[in-house]
């Protein structure tokens, strides 16, 4: 509980240790586990993830290859372990840029109101008017396949949710007494926004970002599956599923294990979101 206490001390978030503790601990354990797997991938992986051994193609799980091998004779376990590095990166960067942009835009819109708010809100409407996946794919296709394009696409599409969340909070909080007090004390707009309003407004977004990470992860897997994300032979779970689908009838293990890895990581984020939401007292 040391972490929570220091969080409490730093930000003054009043933590409530109730039913949220269990999902929080499970979520942190799962994510922490994946983080360790990613960091120590070279030590943990029994084989080189891209080494092709023609002798052991399409072998089912065994002692030598616990998750079996794929059609190129690569060890699926090693590829799942190395894939954790890429997929954790996808979940993190896919969310962070959207979070930062959305929070900034939402703060400005909510705080200043008037025509600033009007313009920014119309911009959000425009983004929302396009189907999410279509917009994302279009951006990636224009920029060219690869993870960099994916992050840009996620940032350009994903920020709207954060902007709307923060704006709604700001609209309420900016009329609260402590905000008016801050203005009356002669504080700059920047200080009132980021020092006083934002810490009180941001909890909901933090919780949302955890569930958003799940969505980003699945999107990342989807675009890799479509061949627009991580390029072969790099080990990434979505790509692995895409490559293995032709062999689903004769080599179920090639797609199943990376699929389970995605599910497990997503569960980690989702439980963390649940637990945080409960403990920080944020209604989802």
């Amino acid at each position: 509980m040391n972490i929570s206490r220091s969080v409490n001390a730093r930000f003054g978030w009043r933590l409530k240790f109730n039913s949220g503790v269990v999902p929080l601990i499970i979520g942190i354990s799962i994510l922490g586990g994946w983080l360790l797997v990613a960091i120590f991938a070279p030590l943990l992986a029994p084989y080189d993830p891209i080494f092709q051994d023609a002798a052991v193609r399409l072998k089912p799980p065994s002692m030598a290859h616990p998750f079996g091998t794929d059609n190129f004779g690569r060890d699926v376990l090693s590829r799942v372990i190395w894939g954790a590095r890429i997929d954790l990166q996808i979940a993190t960067f896919g969310v962070v840029f959207a979070f930062v942009i959305g929070t900034t835009v939402g703060s400005i819109a909510g705080y200043y109101g008037g025509w600033v708010d009007m313009v920014l809100m119309r911009l959000i409407d425009v983004v929302l008017a396009f189907p999410f996946l279509v917009l994302m794919l279009t951006i990636i296709v224009i920029l060219g396949p690869g993870l960099g394009s994916f992050y840009v696409a996620m940032a350009l599409v994903g920020w709207v949710s954060y902007a709307r969340l923060i704006r709604a909070q700001f609209l309420v909080l900016k009329n609260s007494d402590f905000a008016i007090a801050a203005v009356s004390l002669g504080y700059s707009h920047k200080r009132v926004m980021f020092r006083h309003l934002l810490p009180n407004a941001i909890l909901g977004s933090i919780v949302f970002s955890m569930s958003d990470a799940v969505l980003v992860l699945l999107n990342g897997a989807a675009i890799s599956y479509l061949g627009l994300g991580v390029q072969p032979p790099t080990a990434e779970w979505g790509t692995m599923i895409a490559e293995g689908q032709g062999f689903i009838t004769i080599g179920w293990w090639i797609t199943t294990f990376p699929g389970l890895a995605i599910v497990l990581l997503a569960m980690g984020f989702s439980m963390l979101a649940d637990g945080l939401g409960e403990i920080l007292g944020v209604r989802q």
Binding site: G12, D177, F178, N200
Partner: peptide
């Protein structure tokens, strides 16, 4: 209400 709840 007049004090920022997150600040000492």
């Amino acid at each position: 209400g007049a004090l920022n709840p997150r600040m000492t």
